[in-house]
Design a protein around this nucleic acid. Structure first.
Length: 438
RNA sequence: GGCUCUAUCGUCUAACGGUUAGGACACAUCCUUCUCAAGGAUGGAAUCAGAGUUCGAUUCUCUGUAGAGUCACCA
């Protein structure tokens, strides 16, 4: 019998700082829920606090949502609605739900101002929360709370209620830190004749200290993840999994799959500690979903001009979980030997307790075998065959493979000798091996 | 402190009142080509405590404990 209204959700951030993942998770859930039900997702910038608002923060929010491909169906700033807020304010004053109160300004300036207070009926308010169930609170403690600084400066509670009502918001999906605001807002709804939307208060996202995620305690702004070279789909996927799961064992989801699978009912009741390692895992999984061409072009893009070598891509791919790891590998010199091998400690050529003479002999036999391969056939396959046939005859493969790899890289830890040799090419490989035994 | 909420491996979580309490991340060990990485296999690791209801409780109820959120002329 229930009339099926079109679902309308909203994300209502205030542009007073860079938003972290906790805030964006709210946006993601509101977006997924709306899309899942073929509804609309509204972006409303809550900029009624003139003192703290900054345009740059609004720009950041817009850019981040765009980056994640969270498209909103409508957008506006709360400040553009003051006339509407004023209309309801006047209505509430005239019908006795609110009143103007002359009070000394709280800033200590001694100025007498005319603020608007809500006439609190001091009653119990209950509301049904999709996630938390029935929540009941008594509003007496709230007193006659302030709803506007003056007729032209509405405050949060009034503005939220009026705007949600005017936009026909059906589901208010927001952080749990708003539960205690809800009774106040329901009171205002009743006073202006608005119906109460369906509430879904999301459990908080916690930092490693198990406290509400905050920038002060090291939470990154979403734009930082973008700069670190995370994939937007991975962020979407990873963040959606904080406090929600599809009930199956599938964890890697595309944007559209997420919309299909999302359900407010499966949102967790308890807060969740955000795990950045898992986010990196999600990112790697999403990188694996990319085409070879995309992976290659991204890695190349993060490589400095003089080191853009396509042959390095497979080696790098295995060793990164986000694009900025490419830059890190370069910065710590992990790939330097592919371009130039300087002086290195030759005692490192020795494998376990094998004698130096034996090591030199092994390198020489490797040299002979590699000389047989023509430069154009100098690929991983052939190099491996040549080297392994020698190595297998030895007491242990390491006494050949280790010195070869070390002679090519100058490092105790590196990719295997076959791939290094194939990347270096025949000439350079022979050169380095000869250099190792002089 | 008042009010509100929450409680399963280290972390994220699954489990019609009946499961050897499952999975993922992380960790450890082994394998895969000497090392590293990637991949594969294996392993350790949890129902906050105490009552009650029930043939049977992670699941329902109560109490306790612990933790979180919130108490503005911010949002």
């Amino acid at each position: 019998m229930e009339e099926h209204k079109k679902v309308i959700t909203r994300f209502a951030p205030s542009p007073t700082g860079l938003l972290h993942l906790g805030a964006y998770r709210t946006a993601i859930f509101a977006y997924l829920f709306a899309k899942k039900h073929g509804g609309e997702f509204v972006l409303r910038i809550e900029d009624t606090d003139k003192e703290r608002n900054k345009k740059e923060y609004e720009d950041d929010i817009l850019a981040s949502l765009k980056w994640m491909d969270l498209n909103y169906d409508s957008f506006y700033r709360q400040s553009e609605h003051v006339e509407t807020h004023k209309k309801y304010l006047e209505q509430m004053i005239s019908n006795g739900h609110a009143y103007i109160s002359k009070e000394e300004a709280k800033d200590g300036s001694g100025v007498i101002k005319e603020i608007v207070r809500f006439k609190n009926p001091n009653i119990d308010i209950s509301f049904e929360d999709v996630i938390k169930g029935t929540v009941t609170m008594n509003t007496t403690d709230l007193g006659d709370f302030v709803i506007a600084k003056n007729m032209n400066e509405p405050l949060f509670h009034l503005a939220v209620v009026v705007d949600d009502f005017e936009e026909g918001v059906t589901h208010v999906i927001r952080g749990e830190d708003h539960v205690s605001n809800t009774p106040r807002q329901i009171l205002i709804q009743r006073a202006i004749g608005a119906n109460t939307p369906i509430y879904a208060h999301l459990p908080l996202v916690l930092g490693p200290d198990k406290l509400k995620l905050s920038k002060r305690r090291g939470a990154k702004a979403l734009s930082e993840y973008q700069k670190l070279g995370f994939l937007p789909n991975a962020i979407l996927n990873g963040v959606a999994f904080v406090g929600w799961n599809p009930g199956t064992e599938q964890e890697v989801f595309s944007h559209d799959e997420l919309i299909q699978a999302f359900d407010l009912v499966r949102v967790q009741k308890s807060p969740a500690v955000f795990n950045e390692q898992k986010l990196e895992w999600f990112n790697k999984e999403h990188i694996k979903l990319l085409s070879q061409e995309e992976i290659e072009s991204n890695i190349l893009e993060w490589l400095p001009e003089d080191k853009k070598n396509t042959k390095l891509v497979p080696i790098i791919f295995d060793r990164i979980s986000k694009w900025s790891d490419v830059r890190n590998m370069i910065e710590i010199g992990e790939l330097d030997f592919f371009f130039e091998l300087g002086e290195y400690d030759k005692t490192g050529l020795i494998y376990k307790d094998v004698s130096k003479d034996k090591i030199i002999m092994n390198i020489k036999s490797a040299l002979e075998a590699l000389e047989q391969i023509s430069p154009e056939d100098f690929n991983i396959e052939n190099i491996k065959n040549a080297l392994m046939s020698i190595a297998d005859k030895l007491d242990s493969r390491g006494e050949l493979l280790h010195p070869i790899r070390y002679a090519l890289s100058g490092l105790a830890k590196s990719p295997d000798p076959f791939i290094i040799a194939s990347i270096l090419g025949k000439n350079e490989t022979i050169k380095r091996l000869q250099n190792a035994i002089v």
